[in-house]
């Protein structure tokens, strides 16, 4: 059992959890993830290790509520336990002094990019961060990211904060303005990563993306997470999650992520019904007293 030590709401439907996991905390490196299972009936879902603290023996996860499991996790509180957490999985990020690195983060991808950006900064890179979200209330980790960035931009789709538009707008301006970019790291919704890669490809700027395919075991045993990279089948959980974005077949990934749409919405519907029932019961109890 893995205990929740701390929980914080970062934005609308985005939470940060600190979980007691001494062994994982000792081993984790930027770019790696864990797979967790909430309880006996639970599904195994991957979440990136956003921070790790050896002294506190804990790891931090940031999650966005999208379906049954993430909603159920979001409803837990400090002191509650998670049945299984396994990790650190996947390859760590490639860390070197490349020169200037542009970090493009979309939505909850900000949490995934933060530890990578931090280590890249630590080894001497100049960090330019472009943080994007649909609107202001979905922006997370603004302060943390701006602190480690040499240049920092915010973009929202609706212009509620920073500039109005998409992340690639700024990236284009930087490239066209002659900024000498050694590498781009893009983490966020697949569609965003795809367009970042489209933007950098003509300029031959190496672009690393972190893929989030559907996983089960996370050890290379099932092939659920397979993605096509450079025409070859790769397993995201062991060969990734980071890949050379110019080689990734994004359309296939987008399609594979949609494999269980019907089942996911059924699962969520039933979960909502159960939650309402629970609340009613609590309510009744209180009324009865």
């Amino acid at each position: 059992m893995f205990k929740i030590l701390d929980k914080e709401k970062l934005a609308l439907s985005i939470f940060r959890f600190e979980i007691e996991a001494p062994k994982i905390a000792r081993k984790a490196k930027a770019g790696q993830f864990v797979i967790l299972r909430l309880d006996e009936q639970g599904e195994r879902i991957p979440l990136t290790i956003c921070d790790f603290d050896e002294k506190k023996s804990s790891i931090s996860l940031v999650l966005q509520e999208v379906g049954k499991t993430t909603q159920q996790l979001a409803s837990l509180s400090c002191g509650d336990c998670i049945a299984d957490v396994v990790g650190p999985l996947g390859k760590p990020s490639e860390i070197k002094n490349f020169g200037t690195v542009v970090c493009v983060a979309g939505g909850v991808g900000a949490a995934v990019i933060l530890p990578v950006a931090r280590v890249l900064k630590g080894v001497g890179n100049k960090i330019i961060t472009i943080l994007g979200a649909r609107s202001e209330e979905l922006l997370i980790l603004e302060e943390e990211l701006s602190l480690i960035s040499d240049e920092f931009f915010i973009m929202t789709d609706d212009g509620s904060k920073g500039r109005c538009g998409v992340c690639t707008d700024i990236l284009k301006e930087l490239i066209e303005g002659g900024c000498d970019i050694s590498r781009v790291v893009a983490i966020g919704p697949v569609i965003m990563m795809k367009f970042v890669c489209k933007t950098t490809e003509p300029h031959k700027i190496k672009t690393v993306v972190s893929l989030n395919s559907i996983m089960v075991d996370g050890t290379g045993m099932c092939g659920s997470c397979r993605v096509t990279v450079g025409g070859e089948t790769k397993f995201c959980c062991v060969d990734g999650p980071e890949f050379d974005g110019h080689l990734v077949d994004f359309d296939e990934l987008i399609n594979r992520q949609r494999m269980y749409l019907e089942e996911e919405s059924l699962s969520l519907e039933l979960h909502d019904v159960k939650r309402v029932e629970c609340r009613c019961k609590k309510h009744k109890k209180r009324e009865g007293n």
Binding site: Q41, E43, S267
Partner: peptide, 12 residues
């Protein structure tokens, strides 16, 4: 993951 018992079990 007992997907044959979905949706009682979460894995589809």
């Amino acid at each position: 993951m007992k997907a044959y018992l979905f949706p009682k079990y979460d894995t589809p």
